[in-house]
Deep mutational scan, measured.
Amino acid sequence: ARYHDEKKIIKDILKDKGFVVEVNTTFEDFVAIISSTKRSTTLDAGNIKLAFNSL
């Protein structure tokens, strides 16, 4: 259940930042955007990776 909650937070962060994940978006770029907000401090690193892979 935590993964789904965190995935929603991640999607909200991406929307707030106006960031669109494209086919050529690197995981490093994705993490940089997510990490640039205070909301990301509680996110699990594994869940961030899973969310990236699912987009």
Score class of each variant (00 low, 15 high):
21 V>L: 06
17 K>Q: 08
26 T>Y: 04
10 I>T: 00
16 D>V: 02
49 K>G: 04
28 E>H: 12
13 I>S: 00
34 I>S: 04
49 K>R: 14
49 K>F: 03
15 K>H: 09
3 Y>C: 02
44 D>W: 03
41 T>I: 07
5 D>L: 14
29 D>C: 02
36 S>D: 11
49 K>Y: 05
18 G>A: 06
54 S>D: 15
37 T>I: 04
45 A>C: 07
25 T>Q: 00
35 S>A: 12
19 F>R: 06
51 A>L: 09
35 S>K: 14
36 S>M: 06
53 N>D: 14
17 K>N: 07
31 V>L: 13
34 I>T: 00
26 T>Q: 13
7 K>D: 04
16 D>L: 06
3 Y>F: 12
34 I>A: 02
14 L>H: 03
54 S>K: 07
25 T>C: 05
26 T>P: 10
22 E>N: 15
43 L>D: 04
29 D>R: 02
32 A>H: 07
4 H>T: 12
13 I>A: 01
35 S>L: 09
48 I>V: 12
11 K>A: 13
37 T>C: 15
2 R>A: 02
23 V>S: 15
46 G>H: 10
7 K>A: 14
21 V>Q: 01
23 V>R: 15
3 Y>Q: 01
24 N>C: 03
46 G>R: 13
14 L>N: 05
54 S>P: 00
5 D>R: 14
4 H>S: 12
46 G>L: 09
8 K>R: 11
37 T>N: 13
27 F>L: 06
39 R>I: 12
42 T>Y: 14
28 E>M: 05
25 T>M: 03
50 L>C: 11
33 I>V: 15
10 I>V: 02
40 S>Q: 03
28 E>T: 05
38 K>F: 06
8 K>W: 03
23 V>T: 15
19 F>L: 05
34 I>M: 08
30 F>T: 06
22 E>K: 13
39 R>Q: 14
12 D>G: 08
19 F>E: 08
5 D>V: 13
14 L>T: 02
10 I>G: 02
33 I>Q: 11
1 A>C: 03
41 T>L: 13
8 K>A: 09
25 T>I: 02
26 T>N: 09
45 A>P: 15
45 A>E: 13
32 A>C: 05
2 R>Q: 09
5 D>K: 15
4 H>M: 15
37 T>E: 13
27 F>C: 01
47 N>M: 06
8 K>L: 06
47 N>S: 08
51 A>G: 01
41 T>Y: 09
15 K>N: 10
40 S>M: 10
55 L>F: 12
48 I>R: 01
42 T>H: 05
4 H>P: 07
3 Y>M: 06
36 S>C: 10
51 A>Y: 13
30 F>Q: 09
35 S>M: 10
52 F>S: 11
55 L>G: 05
17 K>P: 00
12 D>S: 14
14 L>M: 11
8 K>V: 11
28 E>G: 02
50 L>F: 04
16 D>W: 02
15 K>P: 01
12 D>F: 07
17 K>E: 10
25 T>P: 01
17 K>I: 06
24 N>P: 03
19 F>C: 05
2 R>P: 01
32 A>F: 05
27 F>I: 04
45 A>M: 14
3 Y>T: 01
24 N>V: 04
28 E>K: 09
49 K>V: 05
18 G>L: 00
46 G>F: 07
15 K>L: 07
26 T>W: 00
24 N>E: 11
23 V>Q: 15
9 I>G: 01
22 E>F: 03
34 I>N: 07
55 L>W: 13
26 T>M: 04
47 N>G: 05
14 L>D: 04
10 I>F: 07
43 L>F: 07
32 A>E: 14
9 I>T: 03
49 K>W: 14
35 S>E: 13
1 A>Y: 10
19 F>W: 07
10 I>S: 01
10 I>P: 11
28 E>Y: 04
2 R>K: 10
16 D>N: 08
1 A>W: 07
36 S>N: 15
3 Y>S: 02
29 D>I: 06
40 S>D: 10
31 V>R: 11
38 K>L: 08
2 R>N: 14
24 N>M: 01
54 S>T: 08
50 L>A: 14
48 I>L: 13
16 D>P: 03
45 A>S: 12
44 D>M: 02
10 I>N: 07
21 V>Y: 12
39 R>E: 13
39 R>S: 10
23 V>C: 13
28 E>S: 07
3 Y>H: 01
40 S>C: 05
46 G>V: 10
41 T>G: 11
15 K>D: 13
15 K>F: 06
23 V>D: 15
7 K>T: 09
5 D>P: 02
14 L>W: 01
48 I>W: 02
2 R>L: 05
51 A>C: 12
5 D>I: 15
40 S>K: 09
48 I>P: 04
49 K>L: 09
5 D>W: 11
42 T>Q: 14
25 T>H: 05
51 A>D: 02
35 S>Y: 08
44 D>V: 02
43 L>A: 02
21 V>K: 02
27 F>E: 01
17 K>Y: 09
48 I>E: 12
11 K>H: 08
23 V>M: 14
8 K>D: 07
28 E>V: 01
29 D>H: 05
21 V>M: 03
9 I>W: 00
45 A>T: 11
49 K>I: 07
55 L>P: 05
32 A>L: 04
24 N>R: 04
26 T>H: 04
46 G>K: 15
50 L>D: 11
4 H>F: 15
17 K>D: 00
47 N>K: 03
40 S>G: 15
42 T>C: 12
14 L>G: 01
31 V>H: 12
3 Y>R: 02
38 K>Q: 09
39 R>M: 12
5 D>C: 12
19 F>Q: 05
2 R>H: 08
22 E>T: 15
41 T>F: 07
30 F>V: 01
45 A>K: 14
30 F>P: 01
54 S>E: 15
26 T>K: 15
38 K>P: 13
26 T>F: 02
40 S>V: 07
42 T>P: 07
51 A>R: 00
41 T>H: 12
32 A>R: 13
38 K>G: 11
44 D>S: 09
33 I>R: 00
55 L>V: 03
13 I>D: 01
21 V>G: 03
50 L>H: 12
31 V>G: 03
44 D>H: 09
15 K>R: 11
33 I>Y: 00
38 K>H: 10
11 K>Q: 12
20 V>I: 05
54 S>F: 04
36 S>G: 08
50 L>V: 09
50 L>G: 04
28 E>A: 10
37 T>P: 09
23 V>A: 15
38 K>D: 10
2 R>M: 08
3 Y>K: 02
36 S>R: 03
16 D>K: 10
32 A>S: 13
22 E>V: 02
34 I>L: 15
35 S>T: 10
25 T>R: 03
17 K>V: 07
22 E>H: 11
47 N>V: 07
49 K>P: 04
11 K>L: 15
24 N>G: 13
16 D>M: 08
18 G>E: 09
28 E>L: 01
27 F>T: 05
25 T>E: 03
31 V>T: 12
24 N>I: 01
42 T>N: 09
44 D>Y: 04
